Amino acid sequence: MKQICRVLILMLALAGGSAVFASEADLDGLAAIQPLVGDWTGVGEGDPGTSAAARHAERAQDGRYIMVAGRSVYPKQDKNPKGEVHTSLDVWSFDKARRLIVMRQFDNLGFVSTYVQDRAASREGHVVMVSESMENVPAGWRARYTYDFIGADEYRELFELDPDGKGFQTYVTGRYLRDRP
């Protein structure tokens, strides 16, 4: 009888532990970037000049991911005599093992980059993502994105590059306002 009681107690303890683990798994690891979801219009300023930009972000695959399609158009200007168009597809996920947000970015120029959240630099309303791997980019380059959420209808984006290991330098800043229907 004592043996049966011990087995029942052990089973209840394990079931309780499973319930705690399941509830942790149900937490939204992407909550910090949930404000990106929606349609945005913005202006970028930086090395390639001034751009008009748009972003569309939505939850995908039963809410497990956030996908962001972006387009920035740099018209002909003194800083950029030919002009250019940048498009990107960002796929955000939450790595449960590392407990970090991960972004994989695919750029029309052929760059494919993986960014991971810098937990020490991030805080509520301020998310910092640092490159973990970069394809089709010269060896040694690093990049960093910073997202600052200014209320429900505005965010700012900072993109920095470190081509030579001497520290990040601003490449482009952007200010985005939520589109209203």
Rank of each mutant, 00 (worst) to 15 (best):
T146L: 04
G83I: 06
D47S: 10
D62Q: 14
A60P: 01
S51I: 04
G83C: 14
F21L: 12
P75D: 15
G49A: 11
Y65E: 04
D47A: 12
R99S: 13
D118I: 04
G44E: 09
M103G: 03
Y65S: 02
S51Q: 04
W92R: 03
G140A: 05
A32T: 00
D47E: 10
Q61G: 14
G46N: 01
A121P: 06
P75N: 11
V112I: 14
P138S: 11
S72P: 02
D118R: 09
S18A: 11
A19G: 12
R55Q: 12
A69I: 01
S18W: 13
D26M: 12
Q105D: 08
V130R: 14
Y145G: 06
Q105C: 09
E24R: 15
S18H: 08
R71Q: 09
V43M: 07
G16H: 06
E84N: 11
A60H: 09
Y147M: 06
S93K: 10
R99M: 05
V112Y: 12
E124N: 06
K82H: 12
Q117K: 08
V85T: 13
M11L: 15
K82A: 14
T41D: 14
D26L: 14
S113K: 10
V102N: 08
V91Y: 00
S131M: 10
Y145W: 13
A25D: 13
G38P: 02
V137Y: 08
N108R: 01
H86S: 05
A54I: 05
A19D: 09
E24M: 13
F149W: 03
L30V: 02
F149H: 01
N80P: 04
K76R: 11
M67F: 04
Y147T: 06
E84Y: 06
G16M: 07
S51C: 07
D95I: 05
V130E: 14
G70V: 00
F149N: 01
A60I: 03
L109G: 07
A121L: 14
G70M: 00
G125I: 01
D47Q: 14
Q117M: 10
A32F: 01
G70H: 00
R119P: 00
D90L: 09
R64H: 09
D78P: 07
V20G: 07
N136A: 15
K96N: 09
D118V: 06
T41N: 13
G49I: 08
G110A: 03
I66R: 02
S93I: 02
P35G: 03
D28G: 07
H86D: 12
V43W: 00
V85G: 02
P75F: 15
S88K: 00
